[in-house]
Amino acid sequence: MISFEKAGKRFGTLDAVKDFTLEIRDQEILGLLGPNGAGKTTLMLMMGTVYRPTSGAISVNGLDVVKHPNDVRKLIGIAFQDPRVDGILGAFDVLNWHLKMTTTLGKEERAERVEQVLRAVDLWDARKKRTWLMSGGMRKKVEDCKVLAQRPSIAVFDEPTAFLDVPSRLLMWKMIRELRDQGSTVIVATNMMDEAERLSERVAIVNRGKLVAIDSPEKLKSTTKGGEVLELTVGVGQQFPRELLAEFSEVQDVTQTENKVSVYLTSGRLLLPKIVETLTNRGVKIDSVHLKEVTLEDVFLNYTGQSLD
């Protein structure tokens, strides 16, 4: 378990992270979602003993990061946001050296693991190419592969799929999930909604160095004000029987402009057939139905007051 207790990091006069309190459970995949400059990287680097918290405390499996940095480092593997690889080395050597430093694996076991991850991300043929000659995406994969091959008990990925093409992103997510299934606790920082939503079990929304919300993506969406909106187009000139919908407790409000009716719901998916049935039975002619779901983006907008795109 990792715990942040009122952790803070001040650079000069800037509070990059402030009063940050959060517990990360063993073997979960936690997404840290936040806009640029929110403090995600700073949080991870404090946990990884690179930056020293200027206030509060952080502990990893009960070990305080300031008092026992050496023990904490043995538990953690970090894949950096922008690849931190020795440019003059090829991918194989980068990964092999990383495993030499972080594991007790023998020469052959290391070679095996490195080959396994490099083949998986389709970089085996390019294993000798100097990393500074690689494309941005290739280099990023090598960075992610460090942690995938290391299999640390706490795996940190800072924007693991930035620069990756679509198939590679899906693959990387799969590999990160597998890493968790093998026993690692995974923390993923991202500013991409789909990544946070599809990869993590819990999402922590960070804004201006502060934790503003933490829950599963579903819960976050369901507790967001406004909920889902059912948009109905009814036959022209029809009077819409609003009172009929009042019997559903999930319905919060109904508005009508000409023949477009908007029904505001807390949770619409299950209710949709019932509503349509009730209305049809009453003889209301429905031309079209559209359920607008709450996206994580709405949640984000709600908590941070800013859109990511």
């Binding site: 972080t102 007790t104 640390p152």
Partner: peptide
């Protein structure tokens, strides 16, 4: 994903 009693399996590297 809940308890903190879950042991990190042997597959993670002994470091």
């Amino acid at each position: 994903m809940s308890s903190s009693t879950i042991q990190v399996k042997a597959s993670t590297s002994p470091v």
